[in-house]
Amino acid sequence: MKKKVIKILFVSFIFLSFVSCQKAEEFGPSIFDTSDTLDVNSASYTFDVWLKDNYLKSYNLDFRYKLQDVGSDMDYNLVPVSFAKAQQMAKLVKYLWFDVYGTIVNAEFLKENGPRIIHLIGSPAYNPISGTILLGTAEGGIKVTLYRCNELDPTNVDMLNEYYFKTMHHEFAHILHQKRNYPVEFKEISKGLYNPVGWQNRTASEAATLGFVSPYGGSQIQEDFVEIIANYLVKSDTDWNSILLMASRRGVDGYGKELPDDGVDGRVIILQKLDMATKWLKNSWNIDIVKLRAEIFKREANIGEILK
């Protein structure tokens, strides 16, 4: 009798469990609602429609330019991006990031692997105690936040690269290595040279001689990995070679005084890291970083046309 009752109870629970699962959801082409819910009388209607067509439908991405505190890091004092700068940034991001991958890899690549949300912030995120500012963040491969957008100057390509597009490639490289790990050998190259809390005290020269393309690259292994990719993608040949030249010389401090020999050939190390990143991008993602870089440079020459 006891066994019989237990069986009945067991069957009942199983049945109830199935009932609760009956309404299985069907996945659509986008995780966002792409139905037409935009208000035609809204002041931002035209831009919102453009975003919907060019990001939501094309890349399954919610391009957020209207700041909400809850969608940002509440520890920082921040301000929103201006409507005008948001429009410029949206066009530039598509042209110099998304469409680049669309051309070099394939149209579906960023739809599948890109972030689901891009969030624009008008101001930098200051860390007043350390004297640093945050230019961008990538959260779990889902969301990329770009700061300092109110200072966007589309006529200044160097500034665009330094403050925005290097950040975008940096954050996107984070997303990629969070999905497919970077080579374990990479972790060994600069082992013991990373400085997570005092990286900002190193000059660019000192960082380069240690084998980092930027001081921030010397903060942590994963930052080093993505800084190699991002800097290589946006820096001109002249600028890239300047880093290599700097890396091959003795480092100097903030006052121009020569530092003691660190015993590292920074140039060799940087090139070794670039080689690893190049192979990883090719083997793991079928991305040719040289072609990608060439496409970016080609497009940078046409920025003025895009913003007309």
Partner: peptide, 21 residues
């Protein structure tokens, strides 16, 4: 919420001046 930048209102929220706060 004033969710895009307004140079009059957001002056009071902008961390740029003074000192990153």
């Amino acid at each position: 919420t004033f969710n895009t930048y307004n140079k009059i209102l957001h002056t009071f929220s902008n961390p740029i001046n003074p000192n990153g706060y």
